[in-house]
Amino acid sequence: MIQIFGTKKCRNTQKALRFFSDRGIEVQFRDLSVKPPSPGELDDMAKAAGGYDILIDLSGPAAEQRGLRYMDYDAREILLEDPALYKTPLVRPGKGLAAAGPDEAAWKGMVKTA
C-alpha cells in the first residue's frame, strides 16, 4: 500500500492520488492539515527522500511568510512545527523509499515495487 501525505486542496496531491488510482494501487491518504507525520515518520521519510531540506517547499506561501529563504533554520524542527511547509505530496510505499512533490518518475518506480 502507498501512503500519500498532502492536503485535499493541493493539485499535486490530487494528481498523485489519481496516478495510483488509475493503476489500481491501494492508497492511504493522510491530510497534513489534520494529522501531520509523527517525528518518527518524518525521520523515516527524510532518510528515504534524501534529507529534511528536500521535504520543505521553499516556494510555498508558508515558507515565504516565514522568510525561510533568508534565514538559517533546523529543517526537522520547522517541519514538526508547521505542516504547511511540506512539499506535497509526500509519497511513500513503505520504509526505505519516499518522494516529495510531483515526481512522476519516482511514482512509476513505486508502482513497480507495489
Rank of each mutant, 00 (worst) to 15 (best):
A99S: 15
D82Y: 04
S38G: 06
V27K: 08
D74K: 03
G40T: 06
I2V: 12
L68Y: 11
D103N: 15
D82A: 10
K15Y: 10
L97W: 14
R11G: 06
P37C: 12
Q28S: 10
W107Q: 05
I78V: 15
G109S: 11
L32Y: 12
M71H: 07
M1G: 05
L42M: 15
R66Q: 11
G96I: 03
F29W: 06
S21C: 01
K87E: 04
R69A: 03
V111W: 06
K87A: 08
I4A: 06
Q3Y: 07
M45D: 01
T13Q: 08
I54A: 15
L68N: 04
L80V: 04
A48Y: 14
A48C: 13
L97E: 10
L80I: 06
A106C: 14
T88D: 02
K108G: 09
V111T: 07
G50W: 15
P102K: 14
L79M: 09
G60Y: 15
Y70P: 00
R76L: 12
G109C: 13
Y73N: 00
K47W: 13
V27G: 02
G6P: 02
L97Y: 12
Y52N: 05
M71D: 02
M110V: 01
P37T: 08
G50R: 06
P37I: 09
M110C: 03
Y73S: 01
K87H: 07
M71N: 03
R30D: 00
Q65V: 00
V34D: 11
G51M: 12
L80Y: 04
S33A: 10
T88I: 07
M45A: 13
I78G: 05
L85P: 02
Y73G: 00
Y86H: 03
L58N: 02
E81R: 13
V91G: 08
T7E: 14
I56G: 04
D22L: 06
R30S: 05
W107S: 03
S38E: 11
Q65H: 11
E81G: 01
V91M: 12
T88A: 07
E41W: 14
E64F: 11
Y52T: 02
G94K: 10
G96P: 03
D44S: 15
